[in-house]
Design a protein around this nucleic acid. Structure first.
Lengths: 268, 268
DNA sequence: GTGATCGGTTCATTATTTGAACCGTTGGTT
DNA sequence: AACCAACGGTTCAAATAATGAACCGATCAC
């Protein structure tokens, strides 16, 4: 890990809860020296990635993020393209829908949509990085993404987030086989108590899984009726988004999704 | 300039015209060694700032930009807040309106709005970084921003972009005094032949100029009638945006804008 | 006062970046 | 088919830039 990575890692400290971070806080949170943090933040500030604000001279994200995002969307309109599909899906099914993509070694949430149907819905503001092993999105990407990714992720220690979180790598590998067989992933209370979610993989132009589309609902509402509606709508929407992104669903998964399961399991 | 700055500088190579850049192109454009570029791009890719795509393994901006932009807008809704004002202004005056902010030592365009009134309008897609000395936006920020910025900028060699571009630092300093006196900046064909623009400064919470709001029109249409309408509407809109951003117009400039010019010039 | 913490700076030590040369591939030209 | 140039990527000794303990002045709570 080089100096650049350390500097970029500082930006990961920001979240919706922590929009303003002081120098000493950065040093503590990143485990780096205060002087090192200061120099890096100065360089980040010179390029507009962060800016200092107020009397306390705290740092917050800078306007450069907006410029880069605008360029990214102009070149690859992922977020804008997916957003209407998320909204439609959330409204149709009456539950929270969210979309995440692989960013480095993490799964990061890119967009979400709520439904106004129920007073109690799953909020996604707090989630930023989704744990691979404890969310349906994570399992979907592990199951359909590069095997190397799954190997690396499952080699690391897995955090127990709730009493229901599965943390045994072998047990998770077994679940991934199920995910591969049925074409979507499921997670009940693995991330947060009482939250049940389903997720379908999304693919890029090289037919490689690059993210997931998921629906999260209170476990109490996730009965057989909703579950089967979610399953089919989620898969349809995932196909839509993949197409909008110029991606391709691998034939094997397309077959499963079209209800013609393969006679033999191709992926091991 | 440290390693981090060099790496971040690579991201500035991207533009709407150049969304895909190869390794060797990066090395040439940045003047750095190919190996150096490669290591930096690898680190940027690990954090999702760039991603490799296609058979040619070229690089493009990655999804991390979207995440950071979403966080930035959640914390400081600058772009979203300003956009409706830009649209209204463009429609009212029938010309292209754009907004730029200071990013490091450069003036970068953040947002723009077109009018559907005329077939011929000034397009802003190509502009990304605005030259300080050759645009009304640049002059406005130099005139009302920190003196240190103007000093540094005018100490560097100034490029001649058109036959009308003023490149003499002293002549520009004289123009800045005029800008300060009238409360807005003007530039005729300094940036592009036949484009006439007016700009008003925008201020942050510390009453420091942090950007500019500008209107650009074909010189042929910029007669006395339009010019006076632009002048008053631009100032009103600049005040609106400054307020939306939680900023404060310095009293001296507010007085000028309200038509009560100060008896003596305060800023030198 | 007093002590703790803040953002920021210094400078000898140290670890990292750097870049010329090199590799295997690809794609066009002779 | 042989050739060549340009591509993305890698290597390793030499050079340079990053590092961190100690320090500074300011601020704040007590």
């Amino acid at each position: 890990m080089g100096t650049v990575s350390k500097a970029l890692g500082l930006l990961d400290q920001f979240s919706r809860q922590r929009a303003l971070i002081g120098l000493s806080d950065f040093a503590r949170a990143s485990g780096m020296n205060k002087a090192t943090c200061h120099r890096m933040l100065t360089e980040l500030a010179a390029h507009g990635f962060v800016e200092q604000v107020g009397a306390a001279r705290e740092y917050r994200l800078g306007p450069q993020a907006l410029r880069l995002a605008a360029l990214r969307e102009a070149a690859v309109p992922m977020r804008e393209a997916a957003q209407p599909v998320l909204r439609a899906l959330a409204q149709e099914l009456g539950e929270t829908v969210h979309l995440s993509v692989i960013v480095g070694e993490n799964l990061k949430m890119l967009a979400y949509a709520y439904s106004a149907t129920h007073a109690m819905t799953v909020m996604m503001e707090d989630a930023d990085t989704l744990p691979w092993h404890a969310t349906s999105s994570g399992l979907a990407v592990l199951a359909f993404g590069p095997q190397a990714l799954a190997r690396r992720v499952l080699a690391q220690p897995l955090l127990r987030l709730t009493a229901q979180t599965e943390t045994d790598p072998d047990a998770i590998r077994a679940r991934l086989a199920v995910v591969q067989a049925q074409g979507f992933a499921e997670s009940a209370s693995g991330f947060e108590e009482g939250v049940h979610s389903l997720a379908a993989p999304l693919f890029d132009a090289g037919a490689t899984c690059c993210g997931a589309l998921a629906l999260a609902a209170p476990a109490a509402r996730m009965g057989p009726e909703l579950r089967s509606r979610v399953q089919s709508s989620l898969i349809t929407a995932a196909q839509q988004i993949t197409t909008l992104w110029g991606g391709q669903v691998p034939p094997a998964i397309a077959d499963i999704w079209q209800g013609t399961p393969l006679p033999t399991q191709e992926r091991a």
